[in-house]
């Protein structure tokens, strides 16, 4: 049982920390993108894309979390 608990903590750390990392990255990109958009509205599309680029980090985090849970099974 203790083992399962450790696995759950590991999975949640993998996911939670990568989510925080994504948030930090997106915070700065998002602010810059909004700034750029205020100057030139056509940049919305590119700004949106640049903002979601760090989203990959949290996806990897989720995948790793799922793999860790898979180890438990």
């Amino acid at each position: 049982m203790a083992e399962a608990g450790l696995i759950a903590i590991g999975a949640s750390l993998a996911f939670g920390l990568s989510a925080i990392a994504t948030a930090i990255a997106e915070k700065q990109i998002g602010a810059a993108a909004v700034g750029a958009m205020a100057e030139k509205e056509e940049l919305f599309g590119k700004g949106l894309i640049l903002t979601v680029i760090p989203e990959t980090i949290v996806i990897f985090g989720l995948v790793v979390a799922i793999l860790i849970i898979g180890m438990a099974g």
Partner: peptide
């Protein structure tokens, strides 16, 4: 827990 969750990935 322990299902075939990986398939969609």
């Amino acid at each position: 827990l322990g299902n075939e969750i990986n398939l969609v990935l």
